[in-house]
Design a protein around this nucleic acid. Structure first.
Lengths: 343, 343
DNA sequence: ATGAAAGCGCTAACAA
DNA sequence: TTGTTAGCGCTTTCAT
């Protein structure tokens, strides 16, 4: 097999203990010896076997990431953030997705029960009691992503959906719109709920009435936006602005508007949420809320490593909400877009 | 720490060897004893430590995946294919991306030199001599993705870009178009080169002249499509059809066509390559080439596992080209689209 | 400053 | 069928 510590020790004429010390820069080794050992290791292209190392240290320098099926863009960006941070800190990333076929509890058990990873970054649509217990009993630290559980039991990093929704709706209000509709996300979905809360709060804080006819259920997909728009515009009291709880639905709205010959933003303003790549292609550019996904991955990884290294108490709950940003396009009626364009 | 094999042995009143045999279902163990041990293991929620196991067996049941920065969609799908297969076979997946900051050779060395993975799936834009040597000398099997190196030295799985391009251009020819333009991908890019070859071959096989004025360089991005289109349509001999070497450029073409009031496909037909999600949103739906990315991941993983298990000779080179599929939208002039729509 | 040796938790060859 | 034992390659005490 590969060259190992014994070989280095033999060549250097020292014991393996000394080699280990020299290479890990801990324990005391005469400078001269250290130099020599490091030189030999380099020349022989020696890489310590991380498995053996892991067994001995009870640490694998590997963290596990479990993600649900999700929009490609977010999947990629989360991993990117995590991977960047892992690279910086000489850690490794093991991924598993909880696709339909796969039982999340089972996957979790596998990762946690074994010594394969030092910690876990976990994103699941909703946490039931089974999973909750499992997380709670875990011997290895776990960071939850975007679960918005506020029960002070776990460590979690979230996008501040409430604030984002609040801001974008407030922006509409600033334009002077009075009848602002919302096409919601799926019921029970945490992101959707929070965005709806933000919508309601913005109306309330600006003394605008909540009109039930302007609140349309949706499913976060294009179709929902399409039919939601048609429904909204075919009723007696039409909105002058629409907040779709995600950008995908905004796409549907655009399509429906196009086919109904309704102009955005002249006839009705539209804003979304997520700032997906696609929203950049819409004309007018969609005003939306940017969500810092890469940052979410990066921060959660950074915190997890702190937990692993006991730089923070791994038993202490912690919750951080990442601030979203308003991206101004033309769809809300603004003249000067601050958003990047593609042409 | 976690409960280990000794504990199980103690409780069951047998030796650790017997526990190991019983749990791994190899070696002979009295059925009764096996039952008992497995029951105890289950009750105590015992999971063998994979690190110790790896050290002993010299096998980690983990494969490494190195991917370049790439379109979100492909990144996700590749991982999905690999992950699916890994799950099926009780393997684990370690990912690393070779982002700009990161040296690919270094990453490679890290993965290969150490015993962290049993094998590697590697996708890199272009393989220089450094990397080539590294791969060649690797003690662990490596499967290359989409590199199209035909030197019979490595194992690789590729999308058949040539065939895809040939098919889609042939489809245009079937429509009766005589002046078919191409907006190419970046020079030196293997996908781009192969797609260009397919284009040329299709023209040749159908006795159509190659017109230099209809061959436009591009960069696989929206901008290239946009300006490529403008350039094409502002010259004396205009094309009656355009093959953009990827869908992103087709987006640019659509945008340029819209602003120039040129109708697709009435004034000019357009076809793309990749079948990205976005192409489904175009109106008319883009005729394009579907690339089986999930399948690429799945197959390469499957083959890599065979190499690892010596079911195929890991030293033998192997190359497989995955067949692409024609997706008929309305942009080529076809009336009956076979492509999925979103509404 | 260095070496000897005891693990880390498991597998597998060998004995019984 | 079962147990004993020698590693796997490394880290880390404990001597020296």
């Amino acid at each position: 097999m590969d060259i190992n510590i014994n070989e280095i020790a033999r060549v250097a004429g020292v014991s393996i203990a000394t080699v280990s010390r020299a290479l890990n820069n801990n324990g005391s080794v005469k400078e001269e010896t250290r130099q020599k050992i490091q030189r030999i290791a380099r020349e022989l292209n020696y890489k310590p076997n991380p498995i053996a190392r892991g067994l001995s240290r009870k640490k694998t320098d590997t963290i596990g990431v479990i993600l649900p099926e999700m929009v490609d863009e977010f999947f990629t960006e989360i991993i990117r953030g995590i991977d960047e941070e892992a690279y910086r800190t000489n850690n490794y990333v093991m991924v598993a997705s909880s696709y339909s076929q796969r039982n999340i509890v089972e996957t979790l058990l596998e990762f946690m029960g074994s010594g394969r990873v030092d910690g876990l970054i976990l994103m699941i649509p909703q946490i039931n009691d089974d999973v909750s217990t499992l997380i709670y009993k875990s011997k290895r630290p776990i960071v939850l992503l975007n679960n918005n559980i506020k029960n002070n039991k776990f460590v979690s990093f979230n996008i501040n959906n409430f604030q984002g929704a609040y801001n974008v709706v407030e922006h509409l209000i600033g334009h002077g719109y009075q009848n602002i509709a919302i096409i919601q996300g799926p019921e029970g979905n945490i992101d959707a709920d929070e965005r709806y809360r933000g919508y309601l709060q913005a109306l309330k804080n600006h003394n605008l009435p909540v009109q039930n006819s302007l609140i349309i259920p949706g499913e976060f997909n294009i179709k929902s936006g399409y039919y939601g728009f048609i429904r909204l515009m075919s009723q007696p009291e039409k909105p002058d602005a629409i907040f779709t709880a995600n950008d995908m639905m905004a796409l549907g709205v655009y399509e429906a508007a196009r086919t109904s010959n309704i102009k955005i933003p002249q006839d009705v303003a539209v804003v979304g949420f997520d700032d997906i790549f696609l929203s950049r292609l819409l004309s007018p550019r969609l005003t939306t809320i940017h969500v810092p996904i890469v940052e979410l991955g990066r921060k959660s990884m950074r915190y997890l490593l702190k937990m692993i290294n006991n730089q923070v108490d791994p038993k202490k709950s912690y919750c951080e909400e990442l601030t979203t940003g308003l991206v101004i396009g033309g769809s809300c009626g603004c003249k000067n877009s601050t958003a990047p364009t593609l042409f």
